[in-house]
Amino acid sequence: MEENIATIRAFIFESFLFDANDDLLQNDTSFLDEGIIDSTGVLELVDWLEERFGISVEDDELVPENLDSVNALAAFIDRKKSN
C-alpha cells in the first residue's frame, strides 16, 4: 500500500500538478474539490491505473469514492488486486 501511495503521488504530480510543492497534496485531498483533476483528467487517471496496475476499471466503478484522492486510489487498487 505504501509503495502504491508513492507511485500514485508521483503520477499525480507528473500529470496534473507539474512542479508544485510536495505539501500541496495531502493523501486525503479531494482531486475534484481542489481542481487538481478535471472531469476529463479522471479518464486519463483510469487509463494509467489500468496500464500501470494491470487492472480493469468498470464503468460502475468510476465513482469518486474509488478515485478522488491518493488514499482512495490506493485502497481501490488493493481491493481490485485482491479480487
Partner: peptide, 8 residues
C-alpha cells in the same frame, strides 16, 4: 467524455 460516468 466527462460524462462517461454519471456519478462522476
Amino acid at each position: 467524455s466527462p460524462t462517461r460516468s454519471a456519478q462522476y
